[in-house]
């Protein structure tokens, strides 16, 4: 598997995971009723990637909305990244938020406080 790609929908984000390049992008809205079902394949892809991780792994999370059902699944994704980081690939999580969206910035800081991986808070102009 070189790539894991999922198209976005009104309730789920687009996912673009380039395993050869070590780049994972999650973009859009994440408000499904059943988040576990949506995120499980991504967690599995990260599992596969972890056995042959690149020296650096770059993650971009750019969410417009996410529900609390997704928040736990996103934490699971970050925990996988934490173990990949421990395993020798240097992981950076870029958390994007829109200029006026303090709630989204705060959500990123919540994850930053829990997960032992370098975070970058990236402000996006609307």
């Amino acid at each position: 598997m070189d790539k894991y790609v999922i198209e976005g929908t009104p309730k789920t984000p687009s996912i673009n995971f380039d395993l050869n390049g070590g780049v994972l992008e999650i973009k859009g809205r994440s408000i499904p009723e059943n988040s576990i079902e949506f995120y499980k394949p991504l967690v599995d892809a990260l599992d596969k990637y972890s056995s042959a991780a690149k020296s650096a792994t770059t993650v971009h999370v750019q969410l417009e909305y996410f529900n609390t059902s997704s928040s736990k699944c996103i934490l699971d994704v970050f925990k996988k990244l934490e173990s990949i980081n421990k395993g020798g690939s240097s992981v950076t999580i870029n958390w994007h938020y829109e200029e006026d969206d303090e709630d989204m910035l705060e959500a990123g800081e919540d994850y930053q406080a829990i997960i032992n991986v370098p975070f970058k808070m990236v402000m996006v102009n609307e």
């Binding site: 408000i31 909305y65 529900n67 609390t68 829109e98 303090e102 709630d103 609307e126």
Partner: peptide, 13 residues
Amino acid sequence: PKLKKKVYNVLVE
């Protein structure tokens, strides 16, 4: 936009 986002988020929950 700020209020719109807040309302939308709370509505979802």
